[in-house]
């Protein structure tokens, strides 16, 4: 089974993998706010370079990051294409095909690029976050921040069992294939509908698995007491408050600019 993405990243220690998870979450929130509060391509370009630099110097696996960008590439292409064809302002040229006019809009192209950059930046930000922040460290940081351990632990638990659920799905799919129910050779829409019957055994096996996991966890004293101790130690450095407040201040500046000078 392929190693988890975050584990590849955690193999090399760097400022990103050692960053306090709450600081990383604040930075992600700040980037999301900035991305949604402006459509300025220069800002997007700067953020793009910043994220690439952070990933490179943070020793994250660049191939995995580029793979994520490639996954969203078709979406980005079609968003841009639709904007180019659908917008009617600033038409650069018009083609006539079978008597119908197809217009190419410069405004649509810019708008498409802006939306595409948004998608790429959000995908990159979230990928870097999930690669850099170890779920166990995040659980500890969230617990320290006052989040109930049950909820803080849920993400880590989901990451552990997601491959098993996918493995169950593959087993059920293979079992159905051996009985002539093959969904892999169908188009996307038919596949989606044909996946429905597979969901029933998958959900049932998932519920059974959840029952056993819950029993095993209870037998090891899960949430036995209101408080708990942790094997990992996650402490904020003296820089963390500065980074957090700095990132939030920058995000607020962008929001203020978006409100009072929307043209920028």
């Amino acid at each position: 089974m392929a190693r988890f993405l975050y584990l590849q990243a955690q193999e090399k220690k760097s400022f990103l993998t050692q960053m306090h998870p709450i600081t990383a979450m604040v930075l992600v929130a700040a980037i999301v706010i900035v991305v949604f509060s402006t459509l300025n391509l220069y800002v997007y370009g700067a953020l793009f370079l910043l994220l690439l630099g952070a990933a490179y110097f943070g020793k994250l696996p660049m191939k995995s990051l580029l793979a994520v960008v490639l996954v969203v590439a078709p979406l980005v292409f079609f968003i841009t294409l639709i904007q180019v064809l659908a917008q009617t302002e600033d038409i650069v040229f018009t083609w006539y095909v079978l008597g119908r006019a197809i217009t190419f809009s410069r405004y649509g192209f810019i708008l498409g690029l802006q939306v595409a950059f948004r998608v790429i930046l959000l995908a990159m930000t979230m990928t870097i976050f999930f690669m850099a922040v170890h779920p166990v460290r995040m659980t500890k940081a969230l617990y320290d921040a006052g989040v109930n351990f049950k909820y803080a632990y849920a993400f880590s638990l989901a990451l552990r069992f997601l491959p098993l659920v996918l493995s169950d799905l593959a087993t059920i799919n293979n079992a159905q294939k051996s009985r002539g129910y093959d969904i892999d050779r169908q188009n996307f829409i038919i596949r989606t509908f044909r996946l429905m019957p597979l969901a029933v055994p998958l959900i049932l096996s998932g519920l059974r698995r959840a029952e056993i996991i819950a029993l095993a966890m209870d037998l090891r004293g899960f949430c036995a007491y209101d408080k708990r101790t942790f094997y990992v130690d996650v402490q904020p450095s003296r820089w963390d408050p500065i980074i957090r407040w700095g990132a939030l201040a920058l995000a607020l500046i962008f929001v203020a600019v978006a409100i009072w000078s929307p043209a920028i």
Partner: peptide
């Protein structure tokens, strides 16, 4: 149910 062997072994101790 943890992401490393040591995480699983210390789980009961943490609880």
């Amino acid at each position: 149910f943890n992401l490393s062997v040591e995480g699983d072994v210390v789980f009961a101790l943490e609880n």
